[in-house]
Design a binder for these strands. Structure first.
Lengths: 252, 252
DNA sequence: GTAGAGGTTGACGTTACGTCAAGGTCAAGG
DNA sequence: CCTTGACCTTGACGTAACGTCAACCTCTAC
């Protein structure tokens, strides 16, 4: 009264390969093995197999299932902790979906963002004189040719990055944490790394005054309403300035 | 004006290993390679890298990103189809979470199900005489010892399987599809495979009248209100009977 | 000259099997 | 007895995107 490997596979709704795999990892051994090496399974083995399949359909991993089968863990307990993991995954997915949606919207350019044309790379020519005056002709030229050298898609994605950085600054400022908190400093780090991608930025190497540059930028974000608007107004810009100052002090 | 592998890794917020991986699969080649084999990256490479990282954070796979970079696919298009996939995943997760919750509830035994003690394995002794009369003493004895041989956990999970099967029957019946539809026939197949797990069930091999047995069971589900209740009342049981009859006719 | 930091190319591990590949076993028919 | 076909076996690669050694160069600074 036992079945061959294909037979229980069909009965249980799985494949013979899966059965062999379970045998290999010791999850479910055949109840009997023929002299020819054939695997045979009996009733209790089928019951075990059906338990395994049930738990697998719920998403449990094979090691977790093995624990349940070895009576090291309660099934309900295993499922409960699995449920937590599932909930976390769902959260992550939800956030990612929101992110993708926003990115698509930004890229499609619904006018709202396209019209902004911020200094941060969106329309260099508009600020030509200002940039030349502040950082010199070379800086503008380098920055401009860099920007012109990008494809439309690259520009789109650059904008998206700027958006995200701005959004992260705002949410950090509004979350009420201090500018020297780890969260804020992480955004500051990303901000500085982002700046490094723009030609004309002083390098962090000795000789390039990256520290003064970053601190100066921070002040400008506060002083210039066009920038402040990008970081959630004056309060936001102040937060950005403080966080950048701390970051520059510590790392540049 | 270029960076070593560690430097851009830091600037972009990733690891050198990842950079090497991208080089290996041809996703992002260094802009320059030293005579010693060292990889160096310049500004445009950094821009590319940042595009890649942005898309990766949104969950796109590397092949999809490669398509975007090779201009074979529009970024927005790639993200849109990615969004669909994400939505599907979310659906799947939601359903799985519901399934796990229900399973946990059933196992915890909130009394509602525990009290049911259906024939389908929940309390064999209760139906001893009836079973013996219908299928013989041997059938009852085999079935009973099989049931007693199971551990508490196995019994719990067996109940869960019965619950799910019943729930699937009901939802199939209520969905309005016909008993010979693919969906209904799939549940029928699982039902028959489930029966095979109970000792005493006639085998599908020649000599064992599996066809008559299954058809007889179907009739009983309709005739006996205790069973019918398990399949959503008389209408549900009728659906089950019809589906089983079709299945038996075609496959047994 | 020698640390020490950083670079290189392999190559294995991760999840749960799918998918060949090469070859033995078994029942049925000519 | 031999063949055919269905079924079985073990072995090994592939999957997604790197993390993590391992063994071995290279460069800079003291």
């Amino acid at each position: 009264m036992d079945w061959s490997i294909q037979e229980i596979a069909r009965i249980a709704g799985t494949t013979s390969r899966t059965l062999r795999h379970y045998d290999d990892i010791g999850l479910l051994k055949p109840s009997r093995t023929g002299h020819n090496g054939y695997r045979y399974y009996d009733g209790p083995a089928l019951v075990q197999l059906q338990r395994i399949i049930l738990l697998r359909e719920l998403g449990l991993g094979l090691p977790a299932i093995a624990e349940v089968l070895d009576r090291e863990t309660d099934t309900v307990k295993a499922l409960s902790s699995h449920l937590e993991w599932l909930a976390q995954e769902q959260d992550r997915l939800t956030r990612q979906i929101a992110s993708v949606r926003q990115t698509i919207d930004t890229m499609k350019g619904d006018g709202k963002y396209m019209a902004q044309n911020m200094f941060d790379g969106f329309d260099h020519t508009q600020y030509k004189d200002e940039v030349e005056e502040r950082w010199g002709k070379d800086a503008y030229a380098a920055s401009d040719s860099w920007w012109r050298g990008m494809s439309a898609e690259e520009k789109q994605e650059w904008k998206v990055r700027v958006e995200k950085l701005g959004a992260d600054w705002i949410s950090a400022a509004e979350s009420g944490v201090s500018p020297d908190s780890e969260a804020a400093q992480d955004v500051a780090r990303r901000h500085v790394e982002w700046l490094r991608g723009i030609p004309g930025t002083p390098s962090a190497a000795p000789g390039g005054d990256a520290k003064g540059y970053v601190e100066g930028l921070g002040e400008m974000y506060v002083a210039d309403p066009r920038f402040a608007a990008n970081y959630g107004g004056e309060r936001g810009a102040t937060f950005v300035r403080d966080a950048l100052r701390v970051y520059a002090e510590r790392n540049l």
